[in-house]
Nucleic acid binder design. Sequence first.
DNA 1: AGTGGATCAGTGGATGAGCCACTCAACCAG
DNA 2: CTGGTTGAGTGGCTCATCCACTGATCCACT
Lengths: 234, 234
Amino acid sequence: METLPRETIVDVLEGRLREEILAGRHAAGSYLPPERELADGYGVTRTTLKHAFGRLVQAGLLETRHGVGTRVRDFARLGGADLLPMLVRHSPDWLGEIFEVRRSVGALIAERAAMRATAGQRAELRTLLDAVREADSADAVQLADVEVHRALARATGNRVYALLTNTLFNAYLPVRKQLAGPFQDAEAAHARLEPVVDAVEVGDAPAARSAADAYLSATEEIMLDGLRTAGDAK
Amino acid sequence: METLPRETIVDVLEGRLREEILAGRHAAGSYLPPERELADGYGVTRTTLKHAFGRLVQAGLLETRHGVGTRVRDFARLGGADLLPMLVRHSPDWLGEIFEVRRSVGALIAERAAMRATAGQRAELRTLLDAVREADSADAVQLADVEVHRALARATGNRVYALLTNTLFNAYLPVRKQLAGPFQDAEAAHARLEPVVDAVEVGDAPAARSAADAYLSATEEIMLDGLRTAGDAK
DNA sequence: AGTGGATCAGTGGATGAGCCACTCAACCAG
DNA sequence: CTGGTTGAGTGGCTCATCCACTGATCCACT
């Protein structure tokens, strides 16, 4: 059982402020109203508002200067990939672009993994792939699937690829979770993924690259289809 | 003149906590002491501590559960690329891995840009490249150089590449700033960068890819050399 | 005029006491 | 053995208050 975090006031306030910023209600570079005034407007204490501000500062959306004020950062130009999850929530048209990057980077990772994976890492990949087939629920399939990709990233020997994989996961996994249907078939998932693991296992870099590209294209297609039908139904 | 932000108590506290966590002084998944106790230990108010906690939660290093406690997240496994800046500060051996990814992704971006840049974007690239040559200080060279790469990322037509570029910049630019020496030659920087812009301008994707790879390899070499000599001098 | 220091209103930063809400385990009644 | 109750310990939130910084203004002195 997954423990779902309860929604605190700071959470809500943060989300609301973030939404307003992402929606462009406060121009980039412009100053927000003073904390005292803003806190009053939202009906919260200044302390609570400051907690929310702190998070948004950390996220790179705001910039506070003691004695001057709090200003909206130009995140569109200066922001990092960690903004993706909130950007997707705000406007789903990011997904197409995320998928393209995921595909290119995923192919890169598979290629590197085929070139450099250790024997132990190849064995681990095989084990995880088997776990995908054995999975007994949609959640389990997803979990195993994700773990295979994490293992692939680790197998490159470059930890940055692992972090990058997580960043992209954080961006599109929440969406994928809503499309449980097309992903609950363990056998199909296993079949899609197997060529990648095979190629990495024998160290065939070009094959790994194209297999990963094919896998990611297929997955992407399924997700976009799922979103389209979900949109139609609504 | 760059306005340097003053170091607040929360900043210091956050840095200290972060350092302890990155150093592994608190095992991943283990619980921190209670807020009241911890605040007392650091000689700050619980409110102040909570501000620091808030940032670390946002950064993905901590996880708080109401009524239970605050626990250290397994950032090594689950963290995103936004952790890179702090990871580099903590142990510079990340740089080699970051550069490799930067090189692969940079080549990818140049390739895509060559395939899809609009006429306006090609013209903008040329303008920015000229700005590199005209730059009159080391800072100006760096700034212009960075802007060229941002423009390349934009020219892919995929905003995620732009965010990714920023993420990688955030990771290694602070280091590069410390090596002002090897980068202050505007003419040399222009010469290194020109082949990339040329290839993108005529839409030659393979050439853009290899030119970007060559440029990034050269830059990388210079930075690693600079770090080595800086290390030796010390 | 021009310069330089003092002042002051407005801003964010930090405090500490206090209360609320949640979780978990231990306990107890049935 | 089951199921509800209780209480200690935890983080969430508020309030009132003070501190520290910034920038514009003013004014005395040159």
